[in-house]
Amino acid sequence: MRNIWTIARREYKLYFNGPIAYAVAFLYFLIVGWFVYAELRDALEMATFQPYTPSVQLVTGSIMVFLLIFTIPAITMRLVAEESRTGTMELLLTAPVRDWELIIGKWLSGFLFMLTLLAVTLIYPFILNRISSPGIDQGPMISGYLGLMLMLSSLVAVGVGISALFNNQIAAFFVTLAVVLFLWFFRLPTSTTGVVKDIAANINFIDHYVTFYRGVIDIKDIAYYLSMTALGLFLGVVAVEVRRWR
């Protein structure tokens, strides 16, 4: 457990050592900030005709999901691939660190970094809450942010797992993006029936988020994201084991 934390702490600090953290933060605030601003301006002009009741869904909606989908591959691509390319992997694999500790440590750093960004976006619900009375609806606020946390947990895990397969960061980026987009747009021909259809109907990771977005917390959706997280981490551990045996 201690090793997980040691590894995660180093990687987390590293995000802030370079320009990466600030570039990603810039992207988030530019897009989300402008979007919220434009909405409020519109609402202000309409305010004489009808009272404005802002919703947190302005922030937790498609705009945030888009941003997560495109930034997560970028922040997870180097996590393991970089160690393989520079040879520092040899150091970690000969240190008394279990392979799963290494992978979970890497995942935790990416997860915590994304949580940090997500935490900073709480400023928008805060603003919306201040300018309206009686304030925004707390239900979708809590469930929406919980859903986003779960989603990025699973996406970061998938990113780490794929990063462990490659020596090349760019390859890891594109494969992660491909997998994420596939999980989003995946559908089967409508004629398919049986178990395959049941699985296919549940594989889309946006569908599972929509319930959170609407303000509903369903154990089924939590289970989905947690199993995706486990699957991604498992893939990462297997990739490291395979590296040893090669």
Binding site: R2, E90, L92
Partner: peptide
């Protein structure tokens, strides 16, 4: 691995860390 000190052929180092931080990291892992 706990009892072996290993210096690989191509010395793997985190070039974005200071010497002290690097060694402290390796020590923390141990």
């Amino acid at each position: 691995r706990r009892r072996v000190g290993y210096l690989p052929e191509t010395v793997p180092l985190y070039t974005d860390m200071t010497v002290f931080d690097y060694l402290k990291y390796m020590g923390d892992l141990r």
